[in-house]
């Protein structure tokens, strides 16, 4: 009987499958919309780097940076898609302002990703302490009403009603 693959092997398999899918989709897009796809790949390069360099599985860094990065890429895309007056891909790519906007947006995304978590942790820590104090106060009230033995019975997993 064949040995079942381990969980890690399964995860690695899924990751490879996902990358392959992205690669195929990117190739399809390059063939179908070569200018747009190239521009997006070029503009979203920091995001792609963040995606592969990020240590979290969920890719929160990529999502955060990518969102802001895309805001920076979007005006260039709009210019590329703009009717008869549309500039060449080369003009856009070699336009320093456009590149600056795209990568500055990515920088802002990075900044956001680095600054929000500590703030959030500080806030949740403070709220957690408040909740703990409230719960401990409730416990004190229970002990005052039912006696110190409540603290013992309350943490005794074997205590049953009627003991």
């Amino acid at each position: 009987m064949a040995k079942r693959p381990s969980k890690k092997q399964q995860q690695d398999g899924r990751k490879t499958f996902r990358l392959m899918t992205w690669a195929v989709m990117t190739l399809v897009c390059l063939v179908t919309f070569p200018s747009t796809t190239f521009l997006v790949l070029l503009g979203m390069l920091p995001t792609i780097v963040a995606f592969f360099a990020g240590r979290d599985d969920r890719g929160y860094a990529a999502v955060c940076i990518g969102s802001i990065n895309f805001v920076g890429v979007y005006p260039a895309l709009e210019a590329l898609w703009a009717g008869d007056r549309k500039p060449d891909l080369v003009d856009i790519v070699f336009d320093p302002l456009t590149l600056t906007i795209m990568y500055a947006a990515a920088g802002l995304g990075w900044l956001l990703y680095l600054s929000v978590p500590p703030v959030i942790q500080t806030i949740t820590g403070f709220m957690g302490q408040r909740r703990i104090e409230s719960l401990k106060s409730d416990q004190k009230a229970l002990i005052a009403e039912w006696g110190d033995e409540l603290a013992e019975d309350g943490v005794d997993p074997d205590f049953e009603y009627g003991d």
Partner: peptide
């Protein structure tokens, strides 16, 4: 848990801004 949550919030903030 805290780190994960805060990163989630950072990601969500980014998406919202976008």
């Amino acid at each position: 848990i805290s780190e994960k949550k805060s990163k989630q919030i950072a990601a969500a903030t980014g998406v919202t801004i976008m």
